[in-house]
Design a protein around this nucleic acid. Sequence first.
DNA 1: CAATGATATGTAATAATATTACATCAGTTC
DNA 2: GAACTGATGTAATATTATTACATATCATTG
Lengths: 192, 192
Amino acid sequence: MNMQTRTPPSSPADNGYGFSDRIQHQLEHAAHLCAGQGGRMTPQRRDVLGLILTATTPVGAYDLLEQLKTSGRKPAPPTVYRALDFLLEHGLIHRIERLSAFVPCTHLQQDHPHDHSHGPAENCLHSAQFLICRSCGGVTEIADAPRVLDVLKSICGKKNFTMQSASVEVEGVCEDCAPATRGQKGPAPAPN
Amino acid sequence: MNMQTRTPPSSPADNGYGFSDRIQHQLEHAAHLCAGQGGRMTPQRRDVLGLILTATTPVGAYDLLEQLKTSGRKPAPPTVYRALDFLLEHGLIHRIERLSAFVPCTHLQQDHPHDHSHGPAENCLHSAQFLICRSCGGVTEIADAPRVLDVLKSICGKKNFTMQSASVEVEGVCEDCAPATRGQKGPAPAPN
DNA sequence: CAATGATATGTAATAATATTACATCAGTTC
DNA sequence: GAACTGATGTAATATTATTACATATCATTG
């Protein structure tokens, strides 16, 4: 029996991928949040969340899979999907249905230092609202959402429908990509 | 050259599948609507729409494929997806993103006799709102939607985001499936 | 009516996304 | 350390969707 099997050879993975300080900070925040909900932020989950936080556009499961392979491990789809399920359940990420891809929940993005005051699931209510730009692929989570949610709640109330989660996805063209009404301005840098 | 290749041997398909009178009526309505938009309601598209209208819950593309095979033809995935694309573009059906499945647009369901007054695309604006029951799988298109849409429009306006389409999907438990607050009442007949 | 061009469909292969089932491993508790 | 729980590894497969190219249909119009 090998005495050294305790920590797998994936030492770089624990905080690997060169996550920026800002993202490492967010990862710690996330770890605290899910600890408060009785969840364990394992290295796998941490890495997946870090990659999603790092990306500027929604990331697909198989994209994540590819990126994870650059580390010491050789993960298979279930690895990624399990991590994603965990992060979704704990309100740390959202799934954009129209894209089959994932984005961080905004309350991880904002730079509040360490608030242990509330669980993320409560804030997010498993519901989110997004603006999706067809040109640049960027996704913006709508902060103004309470109004939308209130209308939905009222409709559900009338119909005796118990809302468990809700998603609002608006697709179109964002300000930066708009075909320049004043001045000349191409459809944004590049869709990438 | 065979002189009889004009109408393929799929004669039963033209109004096959034993669509009810009500559905045949809706299909005619739909044909008029898309004719008004310069679209052709071919037998394929008609059959796909009919099957979607017939179903009581959202139907997946491969479900449709299976059902179409019972007719004279042996369609492949592109056949179904092309028909679905057409029906989506002409506002006759909606895609439920969370289910990767399709439902008819409500304005086909309602029993207005024959109104040629407006194109469906205008009514639907490529946007729709749904309540999705996890228990019975039923989906209800929200009629009350203008309020939701107005809020979204106002948000998009503020952000200079050009809305092209929007979907709202609320997942939960419908009235019939609710675990009986007054009286005893199981979780509805059966999810089917 | 044949030639044309546009639209629609057939067909085979494959891509992209997601899940199942079962084995193994790690951490906790008694 | 045995037994339990939760997390991960692994292989196979299921489900959903698209690409590329060939063929057919339809509505003209020359």
